[in-house]
Amino acid sequence: MKAVDFDYARPASIGEACGLLAAGGDEAKIIAGGQTLVPLMAMRMARPALLVDINRIAELNGIESGSDYVTLRSCTRQAAALADETIRLRAPLLAKALRFVGHGQTRNRGTIGGSLANADPAAEIGLAALVLDARIEAHSATGRRQIPIAEFFIGPMMTALAPEECLTAIRLPLWQEPGRLGTGFQETSARRSDFALAAAAVQLILDTEGTCRRIALGVGGVGSVPLRIDAAMERLLGTRLDDDDIGDAARIVYRAIDPAPDLHASADYRRRLAASLVERALAEAKRDALARKA
C-alpha cells in the first residue's frame, strides 16, 4: 500500500501551479488535502507522475462574504468551514452537510475544493453545492472560467475540469427573497462518518403564511453524480409542505432515481432510503424555517 514513485512540486501561487499543470499534461495532478487522492495512490488506482501541492498557496485559502455570494477558496479546510461563523449564518446548508463529511481528523486536512474536484457521488459537499446552485471557479495557464455546478459533475470521480485546470474557489449564491429560510440535511451511513448510503439536502423559503416560495432539493449517493430532483421541487412550490405534499415529493424522488447496488446496500434499499431521507430533510427544513422570526 505505497504510492508509486512521483515527482513533487510546491508552487507558491495559482499562476505557478497552473504553469506546472500545463507543462505536466495528463501526468500531473493537484494534491490539496489528499484525503481522497492519497488512498487512491496507495491502492495504485492513481499514478500521477507529478504532484502539484497547492496547500501553501495563500490565495487559495479563506472564506469571503459578499452581498450576493459566499466564496470559499478551494484549499479552505473542511474543519475551518465547519467552524466558520459566516458559513453557519449565510450558508447553513453547507454547515449542516459538513458535519457528515468524513470525521474530525479527515476534515482537519481535507479541503472544500478537493472534495468537489474528486466528485465522489456520495460526497456531501458536492450535494450541498448542487442544491445551492454553486459556481465553480477554475484557473489555468490560459485564463479562468466559472463552471455552473449543474455542468460540473460528469460521473463518479469525473468533473468538467480539464487536466490543466486548478479549481480555485466555489461561490454559493445567497437566497435573498423575503421570508424564512430553512435547511435540512439527512444522511444514513453504515457507521457514523462513513460514506453515505444515501443523503438528502433541502433549502427552502417560506413566506409569512408558511407557503413555500422557493425550494431546492437534491439527493446524493444514489447515482453516478449528486442529483437535483426538479419534479419534486415543482410539486412543493406554493404548498405549505403538509404531510401529503412531502409524501408526494418523496414518491417522486423514489421514481426518479435509479441507484446501483453494491456491497453495502441493494438498489431497492437505497431507493427507499433516499425517499425517506427526503421526507426527513423536508420536515427538518420546514421546522427550521418556522422556528425563525418572519
Partner: peptide, 28 residues
C-alpha cells in the same frame, strides 16, 4: 495499519491538529 486513511492508527498532531500521517507525504 491500513495505510489508506481508514483506521486511524497512524494519527499524529501536525501543528497541534490531529490527522492521519499515512495520508501525508513526508515532504509535505
Amino acid at each position: 495499519g491500513c495505510e489508506h486513511g481508514v483506521c486511524g492508527a497512524c494519527s499524529i498532531l501536525l501543528d497541534g491538529v490531529p490527522m492521519r500521517s499515512c495520508l501525508l507525504f513526508a515532504v509535505q
